[in-house]
Design a binder for these strands. Sequence first.
DNA 1: AAGAATTCCTACTATTTTAGTAGGGATTAA
DNA 2: TTAATCCCTACTAAAATAGTAGGAATTCTT
Lengths: 136, 136
Amino acid sequence: MKLTNKGRYAVMAMADLASNAKGGPISLTEISLRQNISLAYLEQIFLKLKNNKLVRSSRGANGGYVLEKPASEIKLSNIIYAVDEEVKTLNCKKNSKRGCNNKSTKCITHNLWDQLDQHIIGFFEKVKLQDLAKLG
Amino acid sequence: MKLTNKGRYAVMAMADLASNAKGGPISLTEISLRQNISLAYLEQIFLKLKNNKLVRSSRGANGGYVLEKPASEIKLSNIIYAVDEEVKTLNCKKNSKRGCNNKSTKCITHNLWDQLDQHIIGFFEKVKLQDLAKLG
DNA sequence: AAGAATTCCTACTATTTTAGTAGGGATTAA
DNA sequence: TTAATCCCTACTAAAATAGTAGGAATTCTT
């Protein structure tokens, strides 16, 4: 799992969407102003959120986005995965030549990172979008 | 806290050092061969490990490194901090213009990342170098 | 004394990732 | 018909990471 600004922006924007729900859709322009994130960047992020069925869009004037599900049913892990895609903190297989190659020189720490992954994932699985109100 | 290959290499090398202890110091050449990490890169890493009092060095032929403390007393957090230096998963203050600036538009998710930090740090605080034998 | 093995230290470079910009097209409400 | 909005792709700039290079200092062995 990657933890980047993009993921943070996504969570911020979703939290914004959840807290400012007013019946109709909310435009990215609004979110952009409130959260101080560039509109074009938000568009990219929401494309992915939409593809991952976390938000629903309506186009045209007065268009915007609404949450696809209640905030109580959206896990933070869903959001992070949606925009950052990768699953592992550190991918041992990527650098097959150096370091851990899962073969002869077995990566001593392989299982360790697996455990850490589970730890972080567990954290994001537990927290729901709704909980952010309490935190913020 | 940053989680990079460098940190992983550091943990691997320290684990190697712990498991191959033989009384005298162990050279980076050995570790380099066993763990398949470039010697020059290891040198950089061990410089930091040494500055952080995790290993002790002896120079010259037959020189090398030994653990400064028993493996049971070295926490993984010590190792990661030593080489990767930074403490926070995502630094909100860095990008002061966009996103979270801790001011007017308060970062909704600020506390969230703090919690995550504590979570990850807690994990690395719990695990000792000695424990890696069980994991690997 | 010489040579080899090693740590020590700094600077550089290439690659990858992240962050963000740009521009135009499609759709819809007023 | 116009303005507001989503939709989509491509590009670029900046930062971080990973790794290389080269040489100096130290110590053991012969």
